[in-house]
Amino acid sequence: MYPQQIHGYLRQFFNENNCPIVNGNEHYMTVQLTVEMDKKIMNRPFYWRYIESVNETPNPAQITLITNIQQLNEGVKGEVVHLGSPRLHQLFQVTKDMGSYVKMYEQLQTRQGEQAVLTPWLSVNYKISFRSQQTKEALHSLGINLMTGAVFQEFQGKLNNLNLAMEPPENVFNLPYIITPVRALDRLDAVIDRIVGEEDRNWAVESKKRWQKDQAVLDYFYEGQDVKPECYEIEKQAMEERFKPRITIEIVNGGLFYLRN
């Protein structure tokens, strides 16, 4: 992420959370936090416990975040934020926590007397990690039609082009789902399993080869010893943790969507 991307991200994040940007330019911003955001990111539970116990007027913090220190010449003091800085990492985590579940309705213009129909969908964004002594990740965005059970990939891209809101538009009929969201989630999980199953397995084969080679060296070292010492078992265990191929499936976020077909 370039400085301008990060700047854009921060601006959007604080706007969305009702934290006004009180000062700044394209290289830095000073943000007035809300009480809620202060509690989330400033890590001062004792202050908040005190304020709340004595019923004093809370004074949430202002923070200055610098996104491009090279371009800054006004002697602004603040935290330098870049990819990899703890602050940005923290805000990413907050974003993830606050953006995990949605229920959205597509907005349409209807003529007088006309009734439109919206179809329910479940969309889930999966992150797959392939791990052994090395790792790789993949992102899959799936959507399933809760009336027909049809599954689509790259669903998030489709959703991004629609005009969605949290409230249903007027004069629109939302079809009740036939497949329940919980059942639909099971189906998407099965689809993900199939996608994962079709992935190239060479990485796992390679890891197992390395594992066997190291195990052979270790066994040779203790050849002829019937009772093996503790450090043999420790090393064997370490080897398994290092080389054993495994796949982790994590859900980034997902939601219920009412869309025009």
């Binding site: 990819l83 990413f92 993830k96 953006g99 995990s100 790789k136 990740e137 993949a138 949290m166 939601g255």
Partner: peptide, 29 residues
Amino acid sequence: RLENREQWDSWTLYKMSYDISKNNLITDF
């Protein structure tokens, strides 16, 4: 949330979270 015991999240943060995951994906061993 389906059973209305918790609030739904914001669409903007949802999209941002997806973008972050996509941007920071480790695509190669």
